[in-house]
Computed example of a mutant assay.
Amino acid sequence: MNATSKLEFIEDFKKRTKRFVVNNVLFFKELPKSDEARILGRQLLRSSSSVGANYRAACRGRSQAEFFSKISIVVEEADETLFWMEVMIESGIVSEAKMRPLLDEAKEILAVVAKARKSASENIKRRVH
């Protein structure tokens, strides 16, 4: 990937993670008004919004180590987001069909940031040796 393509990917992925947060906010607004839905929905909002915010912070990292640290947080938060989605489905708060678009997007985002973290880790190891 050349430098221009990489910068375009980064900007597009920033927009994608922000859109993911907005879509989770809109999803939250449509949840049933039960205590369980609100509690789990807030957990979902917290973790999904952290994905977008921390990806942005990772892109501003001043070093490879700082990027690795921030992107690791994104991986953890994306995985936690998936967890809350699964709990909401399995507890019957929402149907899998209704959650499917967000669930698929969360899995795709997780795959991308996990790969970025692995690449960053390999780059750090190469520089150390």
Rank of each mutant, 00 (worst) to 15 (best):
E8V: 09
P101M: 03
R42P: 06
S95M: 12
V74D: 15
L103C: 10
S63A: 12
K115L: 03
E76I: 13
A3M: 15
A58Q: 14
A58T: 07
I109H: 00
E77I: 01
E105G: 06
A57T: 13
Q43G: 04
N24F: 09
P32F: 07
M85D: 13
K98D: 04
E11N: 06
F20K: 01
R46H: 04
V75H: 06
R126C: 08
E90M: 06
N123G: 10
C59D: 13
I109M: 00
A120P: 03
C59Y: 12
F9K: 09
F27K: 15
R46E: 09
I10D: 14
M99F: 02
E90N: 04
V113R: 09
K29E: 13
D104V: 07
A120E: 15
R19E: 02
R38W: 09
L7T: 10
M1F: 01
F67K: 13
V113G: 01
N23P: 12
Q64V: 15
S5T: 11
G92Q: 02
R62Q: 12
F27E: 06
A106H: 11
K14R: 07
K125G: 14
A116Y: 12
L103Y: 10
F83L: 10
D79N: 13
E122M: 08
V94K: 03
V128D: 04
A65T: 05
A58F: 14
N23Y: 00
R126Y: 02
T17A: 04
E30W: 01
R46K: 03
A53C: 02
K33N: 05
H129I: 04
S48E: 08
V113E: 07
V94I: 11
V74W: 10
E108Y: 00
F20L: 03
S49G: 08
S5W: 08
G92S: 05
M88Y: 00
K70P: 05
E76F: 13
I39E: 07
K29L: 00
S5G: 06
T17D: 05
T81V: 13
K107H: 14
E105Y: 02
A97C: 06
R127E: 07
S48N: 08
M88K: 01
L26Q: 04
N23M: 04
S48H: 03
A97M: 04
D104L: 10
F13C: 06
L45A: 00
V128E: 15
V25D: 14
E122A: 04
V74M: 07
A65L: 15
K15E: 14
V112A: 00
